[in-house]
């Protein structure tokens, strides 16, 4: 540790770190304060304490519907993305095959597509599919939640892989082999040994994919059709006068909720990982 910084250097780094934390959190805290401000203006001066914005959004059916849609989309897309991610990670870690680097490149490529371009590309895809189906079979699928889910799975998949692969690399292949030798078939080995060991990474991946999807605007804005999700609704309200304080109130709740969720999951994951590390060590020693 001494090699990395002198005492003064260390102090400066600590100060820099906390300054950055202030920079990151001050605007968020500010919004929290304004969610209790008794005025339709989100501006100073502060006009007194109120809870009415919190009451207001609870009775706003459009907002609640948007929240519900986001929850459904995020649940579906994170589940699919992580399931696909587990498969892909397993192959990437446990298998050798031709064109492996090309495949892994493709699997990770959504990481670097600007969401704007991808959203538009999906919009165009649905347009092309619908044109074809309408002309041939008279079917019209259109846009909507299914389209958002499809898009979010694509962009969440690389994150799922990046979260699961390192964990899978840590799991000793010998444990899986042991399971096989004890007569478990491939599926059983996977279900009884690999998957439990993977659980912390799977939970992390689900969480990342869920939060990514829940808050995603750019892709959703192009393919949502009439199924406005929470960020889309929020965006539309940001630009008109009346809805703002309500939006801030609900966002503060979502924000606090997601912070609690993230921290809780992270703590839980670390605990589980420590537990597993102990078991693994015991396993190897035993």
């Amino acid at each position: 540790m001494q090699a990395a910084a002198s005492t003064n250097g260390r102090r400066s780094l600590v100060a820099f770190y906390w300054l950055l934390v202030v920079f990151l959190y001050a605007p968020i805290l500010l919004l929290m304060i304004f969610s209790f401000n008794d005025s339709r203006d989100v501006a100073f001066p502060f006009r007194g304490f109120t809870l009415r914005w919190y009451h207001a959004f609870l009775t706003n059916p459009n907002l609640l519907a948007a929240l519900r849609r986001s929850a459904i989309v995020a649940t579906a897309s994170s589940a699919i993305a992580v399931a696909l991610g587990v498969l892909a990670s397993f192959v990437l870690v446990r298998r050798r095959f031709v064109a492996k680097s090309a495949v892994s490149g493709l699997l990770l490529s959504p990481l670097v597509i600007p969401y704007l371009v991808f959203g538009i590309a999906l919009l165009i895809l649905f347009r092309a599919v619908d044109t074809f189906l309408t002309n041939t079979m008279g079917i019209y699928i259109g846009l909507g939640m299914h389209a958002i889910v499809i898009g979010h799975v694509v962009v969440s998949l690389p994150y799922a892989i990046l979260t699961i692969v390192p964990r899978l690399e840590l799991i000793d292949i010998a444990l899986e082999e042991a399971g096989r030798d004890l007569g478990a078939n491939a599926r059983q080995t996977f279900r009884r040994i690999t998957l439990p060991l993977l659980t912390p990474a799977v939970v992390s991946a689900l969480l990342i994919a869920f939060t990514l999807s829940f808050d995603e605007y750019a892709i959703a804005s192009f393919v949502a059709g009439d199924a406005a999700t929470y960020p889309i609704y929020l965006y539309s309200q940001l630009r008109i006068r009346a809805g703002l304080p309500q939006m801030i109130a609900i966002s503060v709740l979502v924000l606090v909720g997601s912070m609690v969720l993230v921290v809780a999951t992270e703590v839980g994951r670390r605990r589980a990982e420590r537990q597993l590390a102990v078991e693994e060590t015991e396993g190897l020693l035993g």
């Binding site: 347009r127 619908d130 044109t131 309408t134 019209y140 259109g142 846009l143 059709g225 009439d226 406005a228 539309s236």
Partner: peptide, 22 residues
């Protein structure tokens, strides 16, 4: 009623041209 809103009537028009129906 269920309201589906467009910010810009050009895009609203494009959505219907694309097959959306209300």
């Amino acid at each position: 009623p269920k309201f589906i809103l467009f910010k810009d009537d050009d895009f609203g028009y494009a959505q219907v041209a694309n097959g959306a129906r209300y």
